[in-house]
Amino acid sequence: MNKLLLLGLATLFFTFSLTAQETEESEESENPVEDQFTRIIEGSNDYQGYKVVDYNDLVKLKQTTANFITSLNNEIVTQDNTIDQQQKEILQLKKDLNSTQDNLKEVTAEKDAITFLGMPFSKGTYMALMWGIVAILVLFLLFFIFQFKKGHVQTTEARNNLIETEKEFEDFKAKSLVKEQRLGRLLQDERNKASDR
């Protein structure tokens, strides 16, 4: 009986020391239930092929397990809420990204577009149109320069022809005057001869 009493006291003392260690270690451990199971198994006594476990240790294990499950459930709920919040943020960010990309496309299109005569043109089309207009104007300029030179040549030829014609006319006039004077003298001479007879 004394042996049993000593054994009981030793078990009780050992259990209290284990409980104190369990409390300190369970705060540090990530899985206090597993640690407590290990301690209970290691700290249990053998009695006729059975393991003798203190009832208080089992009650504490039950309480620790319930607390751990509650803690895990709370963490799961917290993680679910965090995931939901992050998914909402991701969706909002995707919407913002799409909106930003649409705005960027509009701004790029506006930046690349040039309004000419009230009509929007892309820069490439505008440049092609402007160079086309410049090319047409250069062609018109070359055409008018060619026409001007051609007209100038014709005018110069006409002036030269006019000067030559005027010279020929003056020569003809002078010759005609000389001829008229000679004919006038001949006529006068004939009149004089006729009046003398």
Rank of each mutant, 00 (worst) to 15 (best):
Q86Y: 13
L97A: 00
T108C: 06
T65S: 07
A109V: 07
L137N: 12
Y55H: 04
I76Y: 14
K51T: 06
V53L: 09
V107P: 01
D102N: 09
K62Q: 15
M119A: 08
G43N: 14
T38D: 11
I76E: 11
V53G: 00
N73S: 12
S71H: 14
N45M: 11
V107K: 05
F116R: 10
K60I: 12
S71R: 15
A113T: 08
I69H: 14
S99N: 13
I69S: 10
Y47R: 13
I41E: 08
I40A: 01
V59G: 03
T100L: 13
V138D: 04
F37P: 00
A66H: 14
V138A: 15
D112M: 02
Q79H: 10
E42H: 09
L139K: 04
D54F: 15
A113R: 09
Q86M: 15
E89F: 04
N103I: 01
F37C: 12
I133E: 12
Y55A: 09
T108Q: 15
L91T: 10
T65F: 04
N73P: 01
I133A: 04
K60M: 15
F68I: 00
L139R: 08
T78Q: 14
F37V: 11
T108P: 01
L97W: 02
Q48H: 10
W131E: 14
A113M: 09
Q79K: 13
Y55G: 07
N98F: 04
L61T: 05
T82Y: 09
L129G: 01
T82H: 06
K88Y: 02
N67T: 08
V53Y: 07
N81S: 12
T100K: 09
L117G: 06
D96M: 00
T78S: 10
V134M: 06
D35E: 12
P120M: 00
E42Q: 06
Y50C: 05
T64G: 02
V134E: 06
K95E: 14
N67S: 12
Q87A: 05
I83G: 02
M127Y: 03
L58Y: 12
P120Q: 04
L104C: 01
K95Y: 01
A109G: 05
F116P: 03
I76G: 05
M130G: 02
N73I: 11
N67Q: 15
F37A: 08
S99T: 10
G43P: 01
S44P: 05
V138E: 11
F121R: 01
Q87C: 01
F116W: 12
L91F: 10
N81V: 03
L129C: 02
T115N: 15
T64R: 13
D80E: 12
Q79Y: 12
I69T: 09
N56V: 11
M127R: 06
G49T: 05
T65K: 12
F37Q: 08
Q63D: 15
I90Q: 13
V77P: 04
W131M: 08
Q48Y: 14
L104A: 10
T70E: 15
Q101H: 09
L61A: 11
Q92L: 14
K60T: 13
V134G: 00
V107W: 02
S99L: 11
N103C: 03
E42S: 13
T78R: 10
